[in-house]
């Protein structure tokens, strides 16, 4: 198929940036979206132009490195996939495709389609862990049975890949789904209980400090999440946050 790509080009963080048009011919429906961009980049290099910079790594939907806002949707039109798992069979001959970076104040553009997601790491550093040192002397893994239902829910929350689609999709650039996934994982497990109150307060405060917006329950994040992280996690985090603030000693 032949396509008309309209791609965001921006030299660096200070550049204003603009949409540039690139026609591309003979795209196979079996290609992944990123393979289509690989082909475009090879053509650009051969013509002496600068290739389009975009983030990607595992190309199997798990590392969370790829992003892209495709025709107004994070990770494009397919559901439950990252951009690297999106295939060209979702498009048809003659389509115009807009390709832009994930946009949010807290995720500034580095170059072209590459954004800086280090604010998301900093939220995790504020409390997304259990404080247990490595010793070889922790108790046996089966010492505390955990109800399968809770273990499964904790796992579902923990499958968040930290790509930032929820933030890019949210009209408020809120990181609630992302943060609540980690808070939920630990709040559902006995290992996470000890620090639960401090964790949720610290992570939520850090999220606000980094410039992410508030949640207004539109649910768009859940729709675009490639891993199907549920809104239920946001409710759980809100409960945890309220409880922590009411019962805290400080």
């Amino acid at each position: 198929m032949n396509l008309n790509l309209k791609i965001w080009r921006q030299k660096d963080a200070n550049d204003k940036g603009k949409i540039v048009e690139y026609p591309i011919a003979n795209v196979s429906e079996h290609m992944s979206f990123l393979e289509m961009l690989d082909v475009l980049n090879e053509e650009l290099i051969e013509k002496g132009d600068e290739p389009v910079a975009f983030d990607h790594d595992c190309r199997e939907g798990i590392c969370g490195m790829c992003s892209l806002y495709i025709n107004g949707e994070a990770h494009g039109p397919d559901r439950g996939v990252t951009t690297c798992q999106l295939h060209m069979r979702k498009f048809k001959d003659g389509d115009t495709i807009f390709i832009e970076p994930f946009r949010a104040t807290a995720l500034p553009v580095v170059k072209d389609l590459v954004v800086d997601r280090s604010a998301m790491d900093r939220i995790q550093q504020a409390g997304g862990f259990v404080s247990v040192n490595t010793s070889g002397n922790t108790q046996d893994a089966n010492a505390i049975p955990i109800a399968k239902e809770n273990a499964d829910k904790a796992f579902d929350a923990a499958t968040c890949i930290g790509c930032g689609a929820c933030i890019a999709t949210c009209k408020n650039s809120s990181a609630m789904l992302y943060v609540s996934a980690k808070v939920s994982q630990f709040s559902l497990l006995p290992q996470g209980q000890v620090e639960a109150k401090e964790r949720v307060k610290n992570m939520v405060n850090k999220m606000d400090e980094e410039g992410f917006g508030n949640c207004t329950n539109t649910g768009a994040c859940e729709v675009e999440c490639p891993k199907g992280i549920s809104l239920e996690n946001i409710s759980r985090m809100n409960r945890e946050f309220l409880a922590a603030n009411f019962s805290s000693k400080k």
Partner: peptide, 20 residues
């Protein structure tokens, strides 16, 4: 030791209905 350590960190391994 690895399994013990990871469970202590909150790694959600698969469990059976008895919670183990």
């Amino acid at each position: 030791n690895i399994i013990d350590q990871c469970v202590a960190q909150g790694v959600p391994f698969a469990r059976d209905y008895g919670g183990l």
